[in-house]
Amino acid sequence: MEILVAIMVGVLVAASVYLMLARNVLRFLFGLILISNAANLIIFASGRLTAEAPPLIPEGADAPLGTVANALPQALVLTAIVIGFGLFAFALTLVYRTYQNLGTLNSDEMRLAEPEEGGK
């Protein structure tokens, strides 16, 4: 399963790179969502995939019984998801506000800060 997940992550990354290269900033945003999902999956899978053994300690025991899933990447991914959401929300409001003020979603036309020199 891990190799298959790796291949799937490759597809996710390829799709997000393709989206982020678009001129439309909304597509860029979609790429951002996909690439954070891909990154989370990479971290998660790097800690190895363990089926049906959540990292919980049963009542009465001092440590997990038998092998349980790797808790460390889970903790990392959990906060990464929330932060990724914060990043996404900020980017979305930025795109939204940009569209309202500049009237475009095309990144080539957003040249307020870096005006093109000498015509074209």
Binding site: G10, V13, A14, A15, V17, L21, S46
Partner: peptide, 17 residues
């Protein structure tokens, strides 16, 4: 470019695994 990056990510991940 997207394809190349995707393939590389897969390869890195497989190597790690």
């Amino acid at each position: 470019l997207a394809g190349v990056v995707g393939v590389l990510v897969t390869l890195v991940m497989v190597a790690v695994l």
